[in-house]
Structure formats: structure tokens, C-alpha cells
Design a binder for these strands. Structure first.
Length: 290
DNA sequence: CACTTGACCTGTCCGC
DNA sequence: TGCGGACAGGTCAAGT
């Protein structure tokens, strides 16, 4: 479930691994949905183009090319963007729990890119929800998603006042549903919604309009703290997520509620509960979250 | 406009 | 052991 910390971890890895590499070939394994570009465009603007930079906006990765086109990538639920360097026959050769990735390409590979030095970048996606679009770099800010998506919560310029203002038009829904709404705040998904609400001691079902200013300040602080810690830990590997080198993240070792139903709350010892709310599995402590 | 629900997919897990 | 159904959750379309 790549959310902001996972996508940022992939971005940092790719920035180190593929910038300045030139695309020699590409291969599409599946469906017009996984890779959205005409073959003429892909041939003209990918082959021979080098990677200028790897950027991120919300949960979307942007691989900018020297052709002035950008590969826009959304990993959705099970997407992976994995780099395999020259001579590396497979991942997972180290500690057996480090990696979820075997020899590539595999049955989940949707797109393979070969660089001129013989190294590869694979877009794997078991459930095919994810996609790659090839677009002119200048058009990227104007696609629907980019126009609607909310501010980046980890930017230095983002303030608690701006955070509170973003929730103004979602007063009547639950705080969890509002946090998951990408047009309110960018990058929060199910894991970090549950974790930040636990840290701020707010019941996920509570309506936005019922929350005090102090609670909203606390939530602002905790959303950032939780996601910053996760980036530090390389993100959360619940099932499929791996970074650009095929390695797991370790944030789940630090989670206080997510996938911890039936266990004791680390703050008050009450049993953590899981229920369905806002259409999602929702984990919280019924004693210390109000 | 605000808000909720279902669809998109497929691997995994659970109960029979 | 095999099989059907529930489940996982990011985003968008369609519904109230």
C-alpha cells in the first residue's frame, strides 16, 4: 500500500540509481491500462532519452526525461518500481526477509525498461491498479489528479493553520474519511491515517466539526511525525511494498495500531480494535482515542 | 457541492 | 485437498 512515505522512499532510491541513465529499450507486458502511451510516442520520447530527475507529488512519481516528456507513475495498491543493476541476477540473496522480489521480470511485471548500460527498471503490479503515463513534462501539472490534489504535508512551509483550513469544507464527515481524501491533504493512506489518529488520541469516527482546535493542532503534528518516522524507516511493508532496490521497509515494527487488533495498546493497555469505517479497515484504541 | 458506495484486480486466507 | 467467498485499499465514477 504505497502511501507518501513509501513513494518518497522509492523516489530517493531511484534518484540515486537511474538519473543520467539513457533508455535503450522498453517492453510492455500487459494491458493498455498499466502503460498509457501510444507506441509512436513511447518510441520517440523514451528511446534515447535520459532520466533528468525523479520527483514526487502526493503518491505519484515523476520520472523526467531529456525528451521533455515525463513518465508519471502511480503504484496504487501493489505497484513496485524496482531497479536491477548489471550483473545482479536476483534480489533476496542477502537476508531472506530483506526482499520480496525474485528474478525479474516475473508474472507481475507490466513494463520493463532497459538502460544503455544494461541495467533495468521494472514496473511490477500484481493487481493492475497502478499505471504509467507518458506525458509532455509541461502538461503534468494540468492533469486532473495534479489540479485537485491537496498540499504536501511535509513541506516546511505547511502550517497548522493551513492544515486546519483544508478541512473546512469537510466538516460533516469523519476525520478519518477527511484524512484519506487526497484533495484535502496529499499522501495520507490507510496506514498513516490510523497511526496519526492514534498518536493524536482522536477516535477515527469523530466528525471533523466536533474536533477542538487543540486536537487539530495535535493531528497536524502527528501526521507529520508519523510520516517522517516512516520515511526514516524506509516505509511500511505490509504485503507487497518494496523500495527501488527490492527491499522491505520496517515501519510496521513501529506501528501502534495498524494490523495490531487484539493486542494491547502501548499507551493504555486496552485491546486494539479493528472495524470497518469509511470503507476501510480501521484500527484504534477504544480507551485512549476520543 | 458534500458525502457515500461500488468498481477496478488478483493473491491469500478462512471455513466447509 | 479443493473450492467459494471474503478481504486487502488508492482512486474515480456514479449514486443519494
Amino acid at each position: 500500500m504505497p502511501e507518501l512515505p513509501e513513494v518518497e522512499t522509492v523516489r530517493r532510491g531511484l534518484q540515486e540509481l537511474i538519473v543520467a541513465k539513457t533508455i535503450a529499450h522498453y517492453r510492455i507486458f500487459d494491458s493498455p491500462k498499466s502503460f498509457q502511451a501510444s507506441s509512436a510516442d513511447a518510441d520517440q520520447f523514451m528511446i534515447g532519452a535520459a532520466v533528468v530527475a525523479v520527483k514526487r507529488r502526493a503518491k505519484v512519481l515523476l520520472l523526467e526525461l531529456t525528451s521533455d516528456y515525463t513518465l508519471v507513475v502511480h503504484l496504487k495498491m501493489t505497484g513496485q518500481l524496482v531497479y536491477v543493476g548489471e550483473g545482479r541476477e536476483r534480489f533476496g540473496a542477502g537476508h531472506p526477509t530483506d526482499s520480496l522480489v525474485g528474478r525479474l521480470p516475473d508474472g507481475s511485471t507490466r513494463v520493463a525498461i532497459e538502460f544503455s548500460d544494461g541495467t533495468h527498471l521494472y514496473f511490477n503490479d500484481q493487481r493492475k491498479f497502478g499505471w504509467i503515463k507518458l506525458l509532455p513534462t509541461l502538461e503534468v501539472p494540468f492533469i486532473d489528479f495534479m489540479k485537485k490534489v491537496g498540499p504536501e504535508p511535509l513541506e516546511d512551509t505547511f502550517t497548522p493553520e493551513a492544515f486546519i483550513e483544508r478541512f473546512r469544507r469537510r466538516q460533516n464527515t469523519s476525520i478519518k474519511a477527511a484524512l484519506l481524501d487526497q484533495t484535502v491533504i496529499a499522501g495520507v493512506g490507510n496506514i498513516y491515517a490510523d497511526e496519526s489518529l492514534w498518536a493524536a488520541q482522536i477516535d477515527p469516527r469523530r466528525r471533523v466539526k466536533e474536533l477542538t482546535e487543540q486536537q487539530m493542532y495535535s493531528l497536524f503534528t502527528e501526521v507529520r511525525a508519523v510520516m517522517n518516522l516512516s520515511i526514516e524507516k524506509g516505509g511500511s511493508t505490509d504485503r507487497n511494498y518494496v523500495n527501488a532496490e527490492g527491499k522491505r521497509g520496517s515501519y510496521m515494527d513501529f506501528a501502534n495500531v495498524f494490523r495490531r487488533e487484539g493486542q494491547a495498546c502501548t499507551r493504555c493497555d486496552r485491546t486494539i480494535v479493528k472495524m470497518k469505517h469509511a470503507g476501510r479497515g480501521t484500527h484504534f484504541c477504544p480507551r485512549c482515542q476520543q
